[in-house]
Simulated scan of single mutants.
Amino acid sequence: MSVLTTVPSAPTRRGFLGLIGTAALAAGCGSSSGGSAKKTTRLRYQGSAGSITPPELAADLGYLGPVTLDWVGNTISGPQDIQSAATGQTDFGGAFNGAVAKLHSAGAPITAVISYYGVDQYSYNGFYTLNDSSITSAQGLFGKKVGMNTLGAHLEAVLDIYLGRNGVSAGDVKKVEPLVVPPVNTEQSLRAHQIDVATLGGILRDKALADGGIKALFTDYDLLGTFSAGTYVFRNDFLAKNPDTVHAFTSGVGKAIEWARTTPLPEVVDRFTAIIKKRGRNEDASTLKYFKSFGIAGTGGVIAEKEFATWITWLEQQGQIPKGKVKAADVYTNKYNSFAKAGS
């Protein structure tokens, strides 16, 4: 593992979501390939180093039809990814549904079309301490540092819900300090006592558990069960001008999600590894062996209303959006997804 990377001028706990408002304003004058009269089948997007996204899997399986993916770099977080889509720097982006709802509330002209990650018994995020840590309860987090990949997104929301369900008042929540730590550095940061709690998910979680010496305080699966947690969004002008492209993309990604769900795991991992090697981005594919699931609840990535409503309620309770301003049904659509049209 690498040494801890210090993030200069990290956003305050609630300040990160404020950046979304800036993105929403910029979206009003941003440009995208959907803004021209010419329709497009080329979709610009950001990836993630060392991992395979559902669209990348769909493209490799040949499920996207005439649609091609144009990788423009790697994203640093979900909120950053959907901001890039909102401002026209990319054509689609994905983030935690709470961040999508927040960006929508700020006036960004975006709509979610398909789920791309979630939580189940195989794919979940845990809040981990060292085995000898004195932290055993929500109140034990007072004055402690909790390392996570970004603020104002999935992990902070789950932390707040955990604290609230365990009797911590809104005022006392501020005694817990979420801290931005790059995911690849989180395990080492915990072991070096630079943070008190590490949020770990997916292959990074499984590797850390295999290394030993850590224990779970709680997980989002323990707290909330199985659910899809994040969606891909497009700008509304792109959707209006390129409905066939979005349909091909969404339905192809849905098909890839089901391929990963029903194909023997070793074959899925082998496919991911081959994609990494083939695309030649100088990535380490060794952690792919820990992949178990995308965690997506709905068949083919179909979005359920509760998967937005839960986080809209949280945003309202936190004062992030005015109560009643955002309705879940206005933030997403399943109309481009063939799995929804088939009644799945």
Score class of each variant (00 low, 15 high):
G94C: 07
N97K: 08
A85S: 14
I76K: 12
T75C: 07
D81M: 11
D91V: 08
T90R: 03
A106T: 11
G98F: 00
I82Y: 00
Q83I: 04
T90A: 03
A86G: 07
I82K: 04
D81H: 11
V72P: 08
P79R: 07
A85Y: 02
G78M: 06
V72N: 09
A101S: 12
A99N: 05
N74D: 15
G98K: 09
L103P: 08
T75E: 10
N74P: 07
A86Y: 02
N97T: 14
S84Y: 02
S77Y: 01
G73Y: 00
Q80H: 12
N74G: 06
T87S: 11
V72Q: 15
Q89V: 07
G93E: 07
G78Y: 03
T75W: 01
P79V: 03
S105H: 07
S105L: 02
A95W: 01
Q89F: 03
S84G: 12
A106L: 07
G94Q: 05
N74S: 14
F92S: 10
F96W: 14
A86H: 05
A86P: 10
G93D: 05
A85N: 10
Q83V: 07
W71Y: 14
L103Q: 08
A101D: 06
V100D: 06
G73C: 06
G78C: 14
I76T: 14
H104W: 09
S84H: 04
G98H: 05
A86E: 06
H104R: 14
Q89K: 15
G78L: 11
Q80V: 09
V100L: 06
N97Q: 07
P79C: 11
A95R: 09
S77W: 04
Q83C: 15
G88P: 12
A86W: 00
Q89D: 06
A86I: 08
I82S: 04
Q80P: 02
K102I: 02
D81I: 05
S105Y: 03
Q80A: 15
N97F: 03
K102R: 12
V72F: 01
A95T: 11
A101R: 03
I76D: 08
N74T: 11
D91P: 09
V72R: 15
T75G: 13
I76W: 00
A101T: 13
D81E: 12
S77V: 09
S105I: 00
Q89P: 06
D91N: 12
L103A: 13
G94Y: 01
A101Y: 01
G98D: 05
G78S: 11
W71H: 15
G73S: 12
S105R: 00
A86V: 13
L103D: 06
G94D: 08
G78R: 11
D91W: 01
Q83W: 02
A95Q: 11
P79I: 02
H104Y: 15
T90W: 02
N74K: 03
Q83G: 13
F96M: 08
I76L: 10
G78T: 10
P79A: 06
F92C: 09
G94S: 14
Q89A: 10
G78W: 00
A101W: 00
A95V: 04
T75A: 13
T87Y: 01
G94W: 02
D91K: 09
N97W: 03
S77N: 10
Q80N: 12
A95C: 13
A101M: 05
F92K: 06
N74V: 05
H104M: 08
N97E: 07
